[in-house]
Simulated scan of single mutants.
Amino acid sequence: MSDVQFARIETPSHGALSLEYRWIHPERASAPLLVFLHEGLGSVAMWKDWPQQLCDAGGYRGLVYSRNGYGRSTPRPHDEKWPVDFMHRQAREVLPAFLDAVGVGPEQADRVWLVGHSDGGSISLLFCAAFPDRIAGAVVLAPHLFVEDVSIESIARTKTVYETTDLRSKLGRYHDDVDSAFWGWNDIWLNPAFRDWNVVGAVAAITKPLLAIQGENDEYGTMAQMDSIAAHVPHAKVVKLPDCGHSPHRDAPAPLGEAIVAFIAAHAQRRAASAA
């Protein structure tokens, strides 16, 4: 993986931002480009080697970035709370500006695939619905479409762990401002106003290929999330992984990678057949 770089962007909601990113196999200019969107406590570094492994397996180019508030990107001011629509703002303001800044424009849409995990999966879904002309499709891992009791309970437990164990120091390896990352995520998810957050209506507008994957032992969401995608995006392929928790890329990397590579290859074959 190449060295970290920084993109400077400006958005209506966040103002000027510096976002860290890394390219994987940038020389593969004509290959599918996977854009990786991390979880609620993730960053470029927290993905570890999985994006590289997936790009190696499928012959892809990759782009991994940290959202503002995470990793080495512009931190969240400590007196600022994420709003209820924070994922909408990431999908509709930050991600389009970031892609433009690093040279991934609409002319590359037929090669761009979003790969989002958890909150990053939700942001991917919202981007797919809002900007279908900018992507070929998306892969979402354990996305949230609405808030469940199990999500709140697990996030509340994580708050206790953060305050009473060495979790803060462990996460500090991956974030320049670990409190910015943790409390930005934790505060909004535990905010009573967020209980009514729901993106099912937006997701129903998705027309591009969609692969949705979740572990059957996910501690942050039930299979109601996958069932909702199946019901509202009938063309989506839904995969439920056994013996897998909230992070399929850590718990079941082999079947996950196989499913993603097969899905993107099948889409390429359909496009080639259609063109012929």
Rank of each mutant, 00 (worst) to 15 (best):
A138M: 11
G120K: 00
R76Y: 04
D196E: 15
W113L: 09
L167H: 09
I213V: 13
A193Y: 04
Q53I: 08
H249I: 02
K81L: 12
K237D: 10
G172M: 11
R168E: 05
P96W: 09
I229G: 06
G15V: 04
H235C: 11
L241M: 04
V64C: 00
L34I: 11
A31E: 05
L37D: 00
A231C: 12
R22P: 01
H117G: 00
F98E: 00
G69W: 07
L17R: 09
D100V: 13
F36S: 00
A204M: 10
A91D: 02
L17A: 07
S122R: 02
V115M: 02
N217D: 15
T207C: 04
A273R: 07
P51S: 04
I213K: 04
V84G: 11
R250T: 10
F98A: 01
V112E: 11
V238S: 14
P51D: 01
A16G: 05
S274M: 10
T160D: 12
E258M: 09
G71M: 01
D3P: 14
L41K: 02
P26A: 13
A129M: 02
R67T: 08
R89H: 08
A212R: 05
L171E: 04
Q214S: 09
V147Q: 06
N68P: 06
I229P: 06
A204I: 12
E216A: 14
C55G: 09
D85C: 12
A272R: 03
V64G: 00
D85N: 15
S228D: 11
R195W: 05
N191H: 03
D177A: 10
Q225E: 06
G221C: 03
G120L: 00
A252G: 07
P209V: 06
L17V: 08
A266H: 14
F131E: 05
G172V: 09
P106Q: 03
L41P: 01
W82C: 11
G221W: 01
L125F: 02
A31I: 06
H246E: 03
A272H: 02
I206K: 01
L41F: 06
E27R: 05
G116S: 00
I135A: 12
R134D: 07
M1Y: 15
G103H: 08
E216R: 14
K48Q: 11
P242R: 13
L17Q: 10
W23K: 07
V261D: 04
A230F: 14
M226R: 07
D56R: 13
D3K: 14
I123P: 03
G58Y: 12
M223R: 13
A45L: 07
W23T: 10
S13K: 08
A230C: 15
A193K: 07
H232T: 12
L99S: 12
A204S: 11
S228A: 15
D251S: 15
G245E: 10
C244F: 08
G59P: 03
G105M: 07
D3I: 15
H246N: 05
G58A: 12
Q52V: 15
S151L: 05
V150N: 01
T158Q: 08
P192I: 05
L210K: 05
W197K: 14
G105D: 14
G105A: 08
P192V: 04
A97D: 11
H232W: 09
H25Y: 14
E216C: 15
